[in-house]
Design a protein around this nucleic acid. Structure first.
Length: 397
DNA sequence: TGGGGTTAT
DNA sequence: ATAACCC
């Protein structure tokens, strides 16, 4: 721990991830938000030196699959979502398979490729939080980025260790830092900078701050310009529990209300189980759609509304009573967005629970507790959990 | 291009 | 509610 700044978690040797300087312009955009570049990359003047570990798991989904089925370990393995290979193991990479490759192309490159379906993220999500929890044992200050990256602020821990060392041992300690080779697609920002004639990190370093602030807004401008000098003082913000839960499904075509309702019920059933296990209660629901269009970059639309309090009460009790009112709410949101009297063509549906609030047990007295039947009689685990087709209201007390 | 997430406006 | 960003 005294030396390296970037331990690989699990996953074996990676491609050299530490290409230092100069950064490509596109990387700056990514870094601006990802905070992939921290203050360790260059000797900076103003940053108190911190020790921040970036744990970036490679081909995470593939590794989860190999753990749950060791027979896959020595085979080229891809994780498939719809017709995409979203990630793959090293065996597959050796044979030419890339992330986000078409299943067709991947099979063509590598006919022996074994594919597992990774559309259900449940196990990946669970493993992801196990990793975060493990890191939180070192320091509670862990920031998640996606399912497979974590930033850990170890400054305090390191300072404590250093204090314990004798002075002769201390002189032997060296600390070195890295720059991360971030992927491209801070897409919009990069396009903006390009339009301003900024094509390299040096261009960005020397560009007028005032003009940049006018073009990009003061916040983004100052951030990326600092980044261009290798300064990133942004704190590691502990992520804590998630702010939202969502489930989505994409498809070629959904063009009837009944179809949509069925999909929504499916998404909802999974979500209710997740909410149940979390323990907190969402106070807002959102429905998101994507309409078929020849090509519009990121055309999603959404409608949201507060969840009525009587529905919130029943949430998380493993009780089917919530299914019907929630579907009703979601279908109202649906009809608010989609004129069902006209032909329509959707390619994605997503349901999101957000505005999560802790259930305040202190505020809720014992009497209240016992007067809410669902609270003391049912739970979300085991046989009461949601199944779609074959359970009816009568099954529950 | 999937199936998620976050923050800012 | 949307848009941008991240993986």
């Amino acid at each position: 721990m005294e030396k390296g700044v970037e331990p690989e978690e699990e996953g074996g040797g990676d491609e050299g991830d530490t290409e230092a300087w100069p950064m490509e312009l596109a990387d700056v955009g990514a870094a601006a938000s990802s905070q992939g570049v921290r203050d360790q990359m260059l000797p900076t003047r103003n940053s108190s030196s911190r020790v921040i570990v970036h744990v970036d798991l490679d081909c995470f989904y593939a590794q989860v699959e190999m753990i749950s089925n060791p027979e896959l370990k020595d085979k080229p393995l891809g994780v498939q979502q719809k017709y995409l290979v979203v990630t793959c193991n090293y065996e597959a990479r050796k044979l030419g398979v890339k992330k986000l490759m078409n299943v067709r192309d991947a099979k063509e490159k590598c006919p022996q490729l074994v594919l597992v379906n990774g559309e259900d993220l449940t196990r990946y999500r669970e493993m992801s939080y196990k990793v975060t929890e493990l890191l939180e044992e070192f320091s509670p200050v862990v920031e998640r980025l996606g399912f497979d990256e974590n930033f850990v602020d170890l400054t305090e821990m390191v300072e404590k260790r250093l204090q314990q060392l004798q002075s002769d041992e201390l002189s032997a300690v060296t600390v070195s830092g890295h720059v991360y080779n971030n992927q491209c697609i801070g897409y919009k920002t990069a396009k903006c900078l390009e339009a301003l004639g900024i094509n390299s990190v040096h261009d960005l370093q020397t560009f007028s701050s005032k003009i940049l602030e006018k073009e990009l807004g003061i916040s983004l401008a100052q951030r990326i310009q600092k980044l261009s000098f290798g300064e990133d003082n942004s704190p590691v913000i502990p992520s804590g529990p998630p702010q939202s839960f969502s489930e989505e499904d994409s498809f070629k075509k959904c063009s009837s209300e009944v179809e949509a309702k069925n999909k929504i019920e499916e998404l909802l059933a999974s979500l209710l189980n997740r909410v149940c296990q979390d323990g907190r209660k969402p106070h807002t629901v959102r429905l998101i759609i994507r309409r078929y269009t020849s090509e519009k970059h990121c055309g999603r639309e959404s409608r949201q509304c507060p969840i009525p309090s009587h529905v919130i009460q029943k949430l998380g009790t493993g009780n089917y009573d919530v299914m019907t009112p929630m579907v009703d709410i979601l279908m109202k949101l649906f009809r608010n967005m989609v004129n069902v009297k006209m032909p329509f063509h959707l390619t994605l549906l997503s349901v999101c629970f957000c505005n999560l609030k802790a259930v305040n047990t202190a505020k809720r007295g014992l009497i209240d507790y016992y007067l809410t039947p669902s609270l003391s009689t049912t739970s979300c685990s085991g046989k009461h959990s949601f199944k779609m087709k074959d359970t009816h209201m009568e099954d529950f007390p």
